[in-house]
Amino acid sequence: MSPSDPSTTLSDHSPISRRPTWLLLPPLAWLGAFFFVPLLLVLAISFATRGTYGGVEWTFSFANYVTMLDPLYLKIYLRSLALAVATTALCLLLGFPLAYYIARAPARWQGIWLLLVIIPFWTNFLVRTYAWMFILRTEGLMNTLLMGMGLIEHPIEILYSDTAVLIGLVYGYLPFMVLPLYAAVERLDRSVVEAAWDLYAPAWAVFRRVIWPLTKPGVIAGCILVFIPSLGAFITPDLLGGARTMMVGNLIQHEYLVARDWPFGSAISFVLMGLVLLGMLVYLKVERARQGDETVSWAGGDRQ
């Protein structure tokens, strides 16, 4: 084909529309060297055995994967799962109204509100978690205030419990829910919401039939962003849950740093990662089958 032929100049042969594949090389190299190779190492170590004084002995065995099924550990997995699900649900419950309010505020205020949402990131997470210990402990801020107002007679023993961990996790991951939800609501055409209202839908039906399905991509993104780090959290349960509330993240940390059983820690890490990945794939598959391909591809962002 000749370059003067107008039907071909605008096709993928033109230099402008050619995909700049080379742009991918630096990130791929980085991820390969510092993510994928270590991941393979973890996989390899998970099939090794612990040396007598810690360390890794390269004798192939499935023993670590069998040990994992011990009821003692299963309880930890279930508690982690329950806490991660509860954290995600609470974040969604708190985050949706907040994100909706911000996205519908005057443009000038949206920036201020969003700034307030992400301001906690400016302080170290560990420091913020210590602050929560200060708030929640028996003689802490919360109990002092509540007793001072005469609302309670005896301090609430809340620190070092699942509730304290849940509070800490919701606090820590709420912004990850709010930001994608904000983006989803911001994209939502106001007149579509008004149209539902005009077409006899009461407030709840407007939400369920129009706002919810149209912001679902943001809900899914927010839930994934909150659920996964909550499931693997270890600082929050360590500081706010104490020794009684161990989550799978603490278990892994414990195996690596205290028990010095790297192979077992690696096995747990790998199974955790695999299960999360599997869960997401199953979810996407189910969702796609339920809604039909058109809606999912629409939700992917090809809106006009």
Partner: peptide
């Protein structure tokens, strides 16, 4: 608005993008 016997045709149409033509009209 949901209790008024009047319906609005929006300038931008404001069709429900996730519903078919039939479901839009049936809403």
């Amino acid at each position: 608005p949901n209790l008024r016997p009047a319906n609005l045709v929006f300038q931008t149409y404001a069709l429900f993008p996730h519903l078919t033509v039939f479901d839009n009209i049936a809403f």
